[in-house]
Nucleic acid binder design. Structure first.
Lengths: 342, 342
DNA sequence: TCGCCTATTGCGAACGCGCAAAATTATACA
DNA sequence: TGTATAATTTTGCGCGTTCGCAATAGGCGA
């Protein structure tokens, strides 16, 4: 048993042809159940495993999907956004349940990841996961379309965007959490996080937030919005920037929990009390958000469901079935930082 | 350009043979630089990519490594241990830097993952990452050895264990943090976390902790040790169990941060002040530990380095170079829960 | 007894690329 | 001009499967 056994060895031992072995191991109905069991027994005994490469080559599919994670360019090299990680768990599991393998890779937007996976037959399809600037994607997405690559996108649903996306309802999330603040009596609500087409998820949250203010007859002040990416540092800097404007505000809606953590730190450093002076709310409900002081009021995205949807949608696409974009509900998680208990 | 281009198409267009194309794209020195560039240009123009399956089949290696994550059996389905996640970041990156792909998969100890990856040629080697009961591994490790599978193990270094491991120095970590507590005047130190051969990492931490107490002439009370696995719930339950023993203690060394979080919650629920009445320290320095109240004093494992070492060691093994186990230093992170500031 | 149908099995050809040996061309030197 | 030597390219095969189609055997009615 020096070199690994091949299907020929099994065939020889079982006294059948190699193709029968192949069929038997694939549970083909074309082979006699009796023979099949015998072949399987021998295979097991020889510790034989089907060579994936040969199998993939022949059948032209890999039973593998690739997960591409796009990070904010400035984020720390080693630290991954906890939100994505929680999705990762659900994605790997759903893959496993469907007999697919998962190839994980971190990418920067600039690189030409687009062809790297499906064209090489490393994967049957791609999941794109990122918090970044989707505008940069556009060109790449076009290429994916052209190459007829199967892919699913996590993020904001946009009309003109090609392909299929799964997203949480960012507009409603932003709306609900802002409405909650308003009901608690906050009137001058700031927003920290990118508010432009460049980061559509954040933008939707912002638009939801604005809508809530309008519906409550509150004036929406564009000057109370400051850009930030999803890191604590960026949130901290953005808060200082907001303070420097010298405009009054009594609440801050942050586009992500990580931002909120930085914002709270900045406010405290500058002598503000949260939530007494300024209420601060986040988005994502990362594990950490429960432990900040005050505990973060935030919006939870159902990552478990999201991961499942992403994989299942992609699998449908791969199977040639039609699949459509879908928006998942967002859920308000009320804790302390909104000032509820006051 | 309906179906994907093959190397034959390129060969035809370039007026050379297919094998020359193959070599040119692999930057073989056997081919004229001029020809090579011409071939590359044509390939790019045709959007040609080498078929990984064919290439792997021929060369009998996949340029892929598999990461197998073993969870504690009872841990929540969707939530992944944050400590492993932080390692995941570093692992994926190191893989990428070395031109390797990463297959990620969650496993339960019971399943026969052992053959699934290398025998099928899906991966050239395996990284085993788990916090679980390593005794259960033993049998599987034997099989890996027998099949000559290349693998690297994360966890405790044990003499009789086959294969190569990378680990943090758990003994010293446990020693240092306990010594720190003693210097702050704590005398009756409890330990929460498995303290048996079954979970060697925890056991090493425990042994380190005991040694520190002995060196300080303190009596080591075995009754002040309670088992727990790495979850908040388990920590909570274990703390209650410890309290039920009615034995006095003024500090608790927890085998992981997640345990510590549960322990603190339990103590507080029972009316104890942390760290005034009881100091509590953790292990791992997960992102959350900075945000608990009081902030956790803990031991940091260099996950960035660990991930890098894991991958590089495995790659060495794959390349046929000798590689040996290695222990990485642990670093004490002092915050509030040890009572330093009192 | 013969022919036909069905349930299994066998045969041989791809799949797309990489390697080794053979073949071709270029270069140099007597 | 001829030949030895080096530089480069080509030929031909094999990696381990899967798949379409042909082949075989046995059962059954006429």
């Amino acid at each position: 048993m020096k070199s690994k056994a091949t299907s020929f060895d099994i065939a020889h031992l079982a006294g059948v042809s190699q193709s029968t072995v192949s069929r038997a191991l694939r549970n083909s109905p074309l082979v006699n159940p009796e023979t099949r069991e015998r072949i399987k027994a021998i295979a097991k005994q020889l510790n034989y495993k089907v060579d994936k490469n040969a199998s993939n080559l022949r059948s032209q599919q890999s039973h593998t999907i690739a997960l591409l994670l796009f990070e904010d360019p400035t984020s720390d090299e080693s630290q991954i956004n906890p939100f994505f990680l929680s999705m990762l768990g659900s994605i790997t599991r759903t893959c496993g349940d469907n007999g697919y393998d998962l190839l994980v890779s971190f990418q920067r937007l600039e690189e030409d990841w687009h062809a790297e996976y499906e064209d090489t037959h490393k994967a049957d399809g791609i999941i794109l996961l990122g918090y970044g600037d989707y505008n940069d994607y556009q060109e790449k997405l076009q290429q994916l379309e052209q190459n007829q690559t199967r892919y699913v996108l996590w993020g904001a649903l946009q009309q003109d965007q090609p392909g299929v996306s799964i997203a949480c309802d960012n507009f409603t999330g932003g709306y609900d959490i802002t409405q909650h603040l308003i009901r608690l009596g906050r009137q001058k609500i700031a927003f920290i996080g990118g508010a432009s087409e460049g980061s559509p998820e954040f933008f939707d949250r912002y638009k939801g937030s604005c809508q809530a203010q309008q519906d409550a007859q509150l004036p929406v002040r564009r000057s109370l919005q400051v850009d930030a990416i999803t890191t604590e540092q960026s949130g901290y800097a953005a808060a200082l920037q907001l303070l420097a404007k010298q405009q009054p505000f009594d609440a801050i809606v942050c586009a992500s929990d990580l931002i909120a953590v930085g914002v709270i730190k900045a406010l405290r450093d500058k002598g503000f009390k949260v939530p007494q002076d300024v209420a601060v709310v986040g988005y994502d409900n990362i594990p950490l958000s429960e432990f900040t002081r005050p505990a973060l009021t935030t919006v939870q995205q159902d990552t478990k469901l999201a991961g499942k949807m992403l994989v299942e949608t992609l699998l449908a696409l791969i199977a040639g079935k039609p699949a459509s974009s879908r928006s998942l509900p967002a859920k308000l998680i009320v804790r302390e930082s909104c000032g509820q208990a006051l």
